[in-house]
Simulated scan of single mutants.
Amino acid sequence: MSTPQHLVLVVHDPEGHATGLLPAEPEAPQLSVLDASATRGDGVFETISIGSGHPQALDAHLDRFARSARMLDLPEPDPGVWADAVHAIAERLAGHDEAWVKTVLSRGVEGGTTPTGWAYGSVSPDFRRERTEGVTVALLDRGLRSDAAETSPWLLAGAKTLSYAVNKAAVREAQRRGADDAVFVSTDGLLLEGPTSTLVLLHDGALLTPPATLGILPGTTQHDLFAAAGDWGLEARVEVLRPEQLRSAQAAWLVSSLRLAAPVRAVDGAPTAVDAGLTAAMNGALRARRA
């Protein structure tokens, strides 16, 4: 059986206002070869997890979508129209335990004034191995200081843009080093994030994550885990972290909307502690979300 795929176009006027939705065939041509999403990577996106037809953390994703759009000076996404687009696709994926919807907003055809928008959804890959066996990571220098978001906002650190070539290259480099994934480190020695995930550590009864002010993407999945930390008798704090804290943590995870919580079982080839019980509790809570 082929994997179901669903597409909705978000129609905009020349002023950038969303005017409605247009169902479309995902296998039919839809995008101009002159669109800035293809020629420049000039746009933003979000990927929302769908659990049995229910979008998870939708408001948080749409807030982050709008934040990224502002950072790129794109038109402000209409949250109501984009929420309708996500729900329209989620309803068509309701027969699947885990699925996803990606929202995309680009600057549109080069030389024009009308943005391009669409929402696309399908069934999620099987992440059971990553959630149970865990992942190995390599620490990679991001090439930016931890204050780059403040000193050089034009670098768009912390925006979720379509320019993902660096993120993909980082994963390939990690794999060349024998790891599954990467964790970025600033040039001044601070832990940041994964190419497609947020880093969470367990230290002395507290869940810890680096601050978004270091130029990293605010994690929607991490936010939901921190909201549930009290259920597991844990505190939750945002703190500046260094690589030695990752290596010595009681446990660590890379968390993201689709893979959920993947425990880190080795850093640069050295084994690290894994808390299987807490990992299972985290993923159970994330999968049970209905908002």
Rank of each mutant, 00 (worst) to 15 (best):
S2P: 13
T3Y: 05
V11Y: 08
V11A: 14
Q30V: 15
S37W: 08
R40P: 12
V44Q: 07
T47K: 01
A57P: 13
D63R: 13
A66R: 12
R70L: 09
E76R: 14
G80T: 12
W82K: 08
I89E: 02
E91Q: 01
R92F: 00
G95N: 01
G95A: 06
A99W: 03
K102G: 07
S106N: 07
T116Y: 11
S122E: 04
D126W: 01
T136W: 02
A138D: 05
L140N: 10
G143S: 08
S146N: 06
A149S: 06
T151K: 13
L155Q: 06
L155S: 04
L156W: 06
T161C: 15
L162E: 07
S163I: 13
A170W: 02
V171K: 02
E173M: 15
E173R: 15
A174C: 12
R176T: 11
A179C: 10
A179H: 03
V185Q: 09
V185D: 06
L202C: 07
L208S: 10
P211N: 04
A212H: 05
G215H: 00
A227G: 06
V240H: 08
A261F: 05
P263D: 06
R265W: 04
A266G: 15
V267N: 12
D268M: 13
A276T: 13
G277Q: 10
L278R: 14
T279W: 06
M282R: 02
R290I: 00
